[in-house]
Design a protein around this nucleic acid. Structure first.
Lengths: 132, 132
DNA sequence: GTCTTAATTTAGACTATGTCAAGATAGAAT
DNA sequence: ATTCTATCTTGACATAGTCTAAATTAAGAC
């Protein structure tokens, strides 16, 4: 993983200890954490970290395009460091979210919405583990 | 639209005035309302309707399979009376959600997750109106 | 180093969505 | 009429997220 400090520098954010900790937490996982989960994780090392700082940092990173906010599960937005286009699989029992490679599905270009600018297309697959 | 009373009867729920009003509101629209929006709508006619009754009724209808809960926008689940499989387009500015016919996309069967039971597959398209 | 200013962080208040339990109410059955 | 069950309401609670004002921290000028 790229250095947290250089990620922050790259988008013109001062690399404070709080931000470094948030970036470390969210960029080193593929678990699609919510802001509250990031807060809980980072507070283990940095107990005074405030909720507002986590939300500010994550939202700034989304604005800068280094992180993608995804609406995939009930109750909270999750954050995805994978900004290449891809699909998602959601385990409806555990809530776990997995990336699905882009070329798993052939999504044709959308020509039927000429006065809209399409910002995102993805296939969302939901399912649960079979019990044998 | 099918009669609200018969919708309720069909899934073994007593057709009380509150439930009839909720069913009327959510089945006669294609606007994908949230529970809070349903509450607000129905309260115009039935001001004593409680929040819990709306949530109970909507969740019961989802359990019975007459309504589908969709996680498509930040902050709240929306309810969709269209239970045939289809895709969705989300206007990221207005928050409006539109149904997209199933055969707009060719989604191949998913063979790569043999120990999962797939409960839902849909393409989610997001975009915003072009300003000319 | 000190001062000034700008950026950042913090705590806490606040709002919105959603759940839950306890009591009140209404219907149906006897 | 009485009982049993289903439903509804109120209000408390939980969680996600935003906002603000004050405190901290860092940066730049001198």
């Amino acid at each position: 993983m790229e250095n947290a400090i250089s990620i922050l520098r790259r988008c013109g954010m001062q690399p404070t200890p709080q931000r470094i900790a948030v970036v470390d937490s969210v960029f080193k996982t593929t678990a699609h954490p919510s802001a509250e989960e990031v807060l809980k994780n980072v507070r283990k090392d940095c107990p005074t970290l405030s909720r507002a700082t986590v939300y500010n940092t994550l939202n700034l990173l989304v604005e800068k395009g280094l992180l993608k906010a995804q609406v995939l599960k009930e109750g909270s937005v999750v954050f995805d460091p994978n900004i290449q286009r891809h699909h998602h699989f959601v385990d409806e029992d555990s809530g776990q979210i997995y990336d699905v490679p882009w070329d798993t599905f052939k999504v044709p270009p959308i020509d039927s919405l000429p006065d809209y600018e399409i910002t995102e297309v993805q296939v969302v697959v939901r399912g649960r583990k079979k019990r044998k």
